[in-house]
């Protein structure tokens, strides 16, 4: 495959993941609404909200600096870039030979700027959000790294495009499932989901992620919102494509590509449904129980590694 084709594939994946992100989020919302015995917003509500925000004013609070205006662009860029660092559908022929670890670090860049922006307006709510977000992330990231390490150990190298091709067709193993569960818990924490954060809350004092965005409006808010949704989709896609790669094609021929695209989409939305189920069935943890939650995730990841060594 020529570099141009590979680049085109990479870019179209990034664009597709970004484009589908509001739908994934909407899907979770609709499902949650069903569990609450109601109809819920239209599936496309996310796009409608974004379209509306485009015609609204950007408000800049007096204490804010240029960083406040820069942060939405950085966080959205980092989320989109992260979606280009690993292959979702076909393992062969990936342009960016980056791996999953890179994706995590690129996402961390977005978080860094969002956290800074949360503090920029001198609002205590932004501060609450930022300090909680970085504290939770500090515990979630090592778990994600260990989970990725388990995978890397299993496939004989870092899980990038080239190496993952080797996974295709391998037997589904218990350690891979354990690692996937550990990573799923991390996704819940990273995407501001129950039991770590409540995306539906209106209470400033309890918010984590949204508290950092309280000062944003207009297009900048649209970008920040989309960034969070893309990040969520990227992490779910990572889970679907890298931790549970079953059903994905190794080759780039159109038939296999279409088949594995369908398998990927099914897994992506299946995971989104799982998020909705978890979110509807447990209460949000007390803030200082989150370390226990992520500690359990870490335990699972380590267990996965031990299981791989033993099996």
């Amino acid at each position: 495959m020529s570099l141009a084709v590979r680049l085109a594939l990479t870019l179209s994946q990034a664009a597709l993941l970004a484009a589908v992100a509001p739908l994934v989020n909407g899907f979770i919302k609709v499902l949650k609404a069903r569990f609450q015995r109601r109809v819920g917003p239209p599936l496309t509500q996310g796009y409608r909200d974004l379209a509306k925000l485009l015609v609204k004013e950007n408000l800049h609070a007096a204490p804010t600096s240029a960083l406040f205006r820069l942060a939405p662009a950085v966080s959205l860029t980092s989320a989109v870039l992260a979606s280009a660092t690993f292959p979702c559908v076909a393992f062969g022929g990936w342009a960016a030979s980056g791996d999953v670890l890179t994706a995590l670090y690129v996402l961390a860049l977005g978080r860094f700027f969002t956290a800074l922006a949360g503090l920029d307006a001198a609002s205590a709510f932004g501060g609450l959000g930022s300090s909680r977000d970085v504290s939770i992330a500090a515990l979630a990231e090592p778990v994600a790294v260990v989970a990725v390490l388990v995978l890397a150990a299993g496939v004989g190298g870092p899980p990038d495009g080239a190496v993952l091709a080797g996974v295709h067709g391998t037997v589904f193993t218990s350690w891979r499932l354990l690692a996937a569960i550990a990573f799923f818990l991390v996704v819940l924490a990273e995407c501001a989901r129950v039991p770590v954060d409540n995306p539906a809350t209106h209470l400033e004092l309890t918010m984590v992620h949204e508290a950092m965005l309280l000062e944003y409006s207009g297009r900048e808010f649209a970008a920040s919102t989309l960034a969070a949704q893309v990040k969520q989709t990227v992490l779910l896609a990572l889970l679907a494509a890298v931790f549970l790669p079953d059903g994905l094609g190794a080759s780039g021929d159109p038939g296999a590509l279409a088949l594995s695209a369908a398998a990927f989409a099914a897994k992506l939305f299946g995971l989104a449904a799982l998020v909705a189920v978890v979110e509807s069935s447990v209460a949000k943890l007390r803030l200082f129980r989150v370390p226990d939650f992520l500690g359990a995730a870490a335990g699972l990841a380590i267990l996965a590694y031990v299981a791989r060594e033993a099996l």
């Binding site: 004013e57 950007n58 800049h60 609070a61 307006a121 001198a122 309280l214 000062e215 207009g218 970008a223």
Partner: peptide, 13 residues
Amino acid sequence: LGRGMKARATGTW
């Protein structure tokens, strides 16, 4: 992002 409606300066909420 900066090219929408003209941005407006205001106080922190």
